[in-house]
Amino acid sequence: MQNNFPNEGMSVIVKTITRFTVWLIFLYGLYIVLHGHLSPGGGFAGGVIIALSYVHLTLAYGKNFVLARVDKFAMNSLESIAAILFVLTGIVGLYVVGNFLANFMGIGKLYTLISAGYIPMLNIFICVKVGMGLYLVFYYLASFKPQEG
C-alpha cells in the first residue's frame, strides 16, 4: 500500500502490526455477517466489527490515509442505499406474501450457508448500514476541533 501521509498516525511498530491484523478483523466481520443465520452474530455485530477494522486503520495511520481510499460521499450514499433496500425488501414481502417484511424466499436446508430465506440478505444490508454509519459517526466525532466555534 502506498502511504502518502507517512508522518501521521502512530509508530512504525503499530503500523506494521496493523498491516497484518486489519485484514483478519475485516474477514472475521464478513464471516459473522454471512453466518448470521447459523451462529450467534448477524448484521449488526458483523457491521460493528467491519467498522472497527476501519477505526483500527484510522487510529494507526491517521484519518487522511483512510479517506484517500474511501470516499465519504460514497459511504454516506451506501448507508442510505442499504436502508432503502431493507425497506424495499419489506415492501416486496408485503406484496408477495401479504405481511410487511414476510419471508418470500425458500427456507432451504437447515445448517447450510444459503438457507433461511431472506435473512442473509437482510444481514448484508444491516451490515453495510451499520458499518458505514458507525465509521462515519467515529469519523465525525474525531474530526471536531475544540478551538473552532
Partner: peptide
Amino acid sequence: PLLAAFLIVL
C-alpha cells in the same frame, strides 16, 4: 416516511 427520509439523504 422512513423511505422518504433515506431518499432525501441519498
